[in-house]
């Protein structure tokens, strides 16, 4: 398998760091995220872990303006994401693998992938990128003409990741990519993400799978009831018995 190509400067913004400051998210009267601050340095990989309902997904959704109300600051490089509309976030070079895959079930696998590159002209560059994704996930190539809704859960997850990579993002945001995957597939995802990192892509990962989290992330943030209660290097947290027991079920 060949390595994924880095975006050229012509095609996408240069890699930058994600800065989140004092982020709060509200659903009507419910506050799901409380004053959370963290950053993902250029080329870095950060994981957010926490119990169900802690507010992990809400942070990612807030980046894409997919929550009712958010306050604080989110910036990616020079782009103020608080001012960007949902569809403008990808312009800044951020790819999103949403919770629950959210693939376009009625479109084919290839159409799903191409839509990942919606912001680009569907020319030879995009074709080449498509070939790279197929190389990364050969299963998808054999299913390219099938309706995405007919794929297995694991294949759909591959598709969701592949679709996010089509825009050649400099930061990929993944919400529980291991959900519902067989262990061997989790390894495959971990492999893909590690390989992405070698191309300089930054990662922001929400995960419940310890193996994947610690294999990929340098830094972990522990979220509890919407608050960041702990942060540290993967190495530190991996050996923290409390973290292992409460958040990762080890």
């Amino acid at each position: 398998m060949s390595a994924l190509t880095m975006p050229t400067t012509r095609e996408a913004p240069t890699a930058s760091s994600l800065v989140v400051e004092q982020l709060s998210v509200f659903y009507g009267g419910v506050q799901a995220v409380r004053d959370v601050s963290f950053s993902v340095p250029q080329g870095g990989a950060v994981a957010i872990i926490g119990a169900n309902g802690a507010g992990k997904s809400s942070i990612l959704k807030a980046m894409f303006d997919l929550v009712p109300r958010r306050t604080g600051r989110i910036a990616y490089g020079s782009t103020d994401l608080m001012r960007a509309k949902s569809h403008e976030v990808v312009w800044a070079g951020i790819g999103y693998v949403p919770e629950g895959r959210r693939i376009f079930a009625g479109l084919t696998v290839e159409q799903n992938l191409l839509l990942g590159a919606y912001r680009k002209r569907w020319d030879a560059h995009v074709r080449a990128r498509l070939a790279e994704i197929y190389e990364l996930f050969p299963k998808l190539e054999t299913r390219r003409g099938r309706l995405a809704g007919g794929l297995s859960g694991g294949e759909q997850q591959m598709l969701a990741i592949g679709r996010a990579l089509m825009s050649q993002p400099t930061l990929v945001v993944l919400d529980e990519p291991s959900m519902g995957l067989a262990p061997v597939l989790v390894d495959e995802v971990a492999d893909v993400l590690s390989r992405l990192r070698t191309t300089g892509v930054s990662l922001l990962l929400v995960e419940q799978n310890a193996e994947l989290t610690f294999a990929v992330a340098d830094t972990c943030i522990v979220l509890e009831n919407g608050r960041a209660v702990l942060a540290g290097s993967s190495g530190e947290l991996q050996s923290d018995p409390e973290v292992r027991r409460v958040y990762l079920g080890l």
Partner: peptide, 8 residues
């Protein structure tokens, strides 16, 4: 939502 996350 997924569509707008793709830049649509």
């Amino acid at each position: 939502q997924a569509a707008s996350a793709m830049g649509i």
